[in-house]
């Protein structure tokens, strides 16, 4: 009987794999005001950037909403009913550019965090699990990356790789991975002393099996939480690098580039700087709040961690 109901439940969850997940998300979003705000902001950003990406890929050009379409007759117009965020020096619509910038920033950020978290988690797992001189060597190597002020190291690496989006990604991954290595190592150090790991070892599990089936599932939620918070910080850093001329290059509608380009038109054309910067801030706030809420949910005792900058 019970096996029957189990079977039914399993088949149901197979039929509706999203339902339980959706319910979880709703429970999380309504758990506190902060979580609700975070979920709203992040969903909004994701919808906007996915649509912008879709429009880019499918090559859809909505007239009056094309980030690269110039209109010399309408240069440097302040925000109006027609152009909600005004137009830039060659008459491109600022709203279209800010929207298009969202998927550029988010994809750079996801790429950076994918590299940083995979490298950092691997180093942290190995250092914590193996211990001894391997741990010592790996962690001193990690410390080396933390001996530089973050932006200075990122700028030096980006300059060495010749600038551009790929350099930015490499440079920021180099700045962010050490934090993952430290976080995961310290968690693995305490986890590996626990009974379920010892039990698994007694049953004859190999090192690889222990790492992948006992340790990794216990640490990956930490990685997700940290990465969520870091989305905002990576976007801040990436836009900073392009502001300095090391990241995306004009005419790419990247937010940092747009703010840099606005410098020559200040103070007359305030809208050129205010909207792209506001977009960066909104994304950073959204992911910051989401990361904090997830952390509270996961382990209230952790509290707000220090920022990974």
């Amino acid at each position: 009987m019970s096996s029957d109901s189990n079977l039914i439940r399993r088949s149901q969850s197979l039929q509706f794999p999203g339902r339980e997940r959706a319910a979880q998300i709703v429970r999380f979003a309504t758990s506190s005001g902060q979580a609700l705000l975070a979920v709203c902001i992040v969903s909004f950003i994701l919808v906007v950037s996915v649509s912008a990406f879709g429009a880019f890929i499918l090559d859809i050009h909505v007239t009056a909403f094309d980030p690269l379409k110039m209109n010399i007759m309408a240069r440097l117009e302040p925000p109006s009913g027609e152009h909600w965020m005004g137009t830039d020096k060659i008459g491109r619509d600022m709203l279209a550019r800010v929207v298009a910038g969202s998927w550029i920033s988010l994809s750079v950020s996801f790429a950076v965090l994918a590299v940083a978290s995979v490298v950092g988690t691997s180093v942290g797992l190995v250092a914590g699990y193996v211990g001894g001189w391997v741990d010592e060597v790996l962690m001193r190597f990690t410390d080396l990356f933390l001996a530089f002020p973050a932006l200075i190291l990122a700028a030096a690496i980006a300059a060495s790789f010749g600038g551009g989006m790929v350099s930015t990604t490499v440079a920021l991954a180099a700045v962010f991975w050490p934090w993952y290595a430290r976080l995961i190592r310290s968690r693995v150090l305490s986890l590996k002393e626990q009974e379920f790991v010892a039990a698994s070892r007694c049953l004859g599990a190999s090192h690889t099996r222990l790492i992948f089936t006992s340790l990794l599932p216990m640490v990956w939620p930490l990685v997700i939480v940290q990465a969520t918070t870091d989305v905002g910080f990576v976007i801040l850093a990436a836009s900073g690098l392009s502001f300095l001329g090391l990241g995306a290059q004009p005419p790419t509608p990247e937010w940092g580039v747009m703010i840099f380009e606005s410098l020559t038109h200040q103070p007359a054309s305030w809208w050129l700087a205010v909207f792209p910067g506001g977009a960066i801030a909104l994304v950073a706030i959204g992911f910051n709040l989401l990361g904090d809420s997830l952390r509270d949910r996961l382990d209230p005792s952790l509290g707000a961690s220090e920022a990974g900058v």
Binding site: G240, I259, P267, A273, V274, P276, G277, A281
Partner: peptide, 21 residues
């Protein structure tokens, strides 16, 4: 949260626009 999220180069510009211009 605001202090960590707002880009400093942007805030510098906004303050300049506000307090100077």
């Amino acid at each position: 949260v605001l202090g960590l999220s707002v880009p400093d180069f942007w805030l510098a510009l906004v303050f300049q626009l506000l307090f100077f211009a």
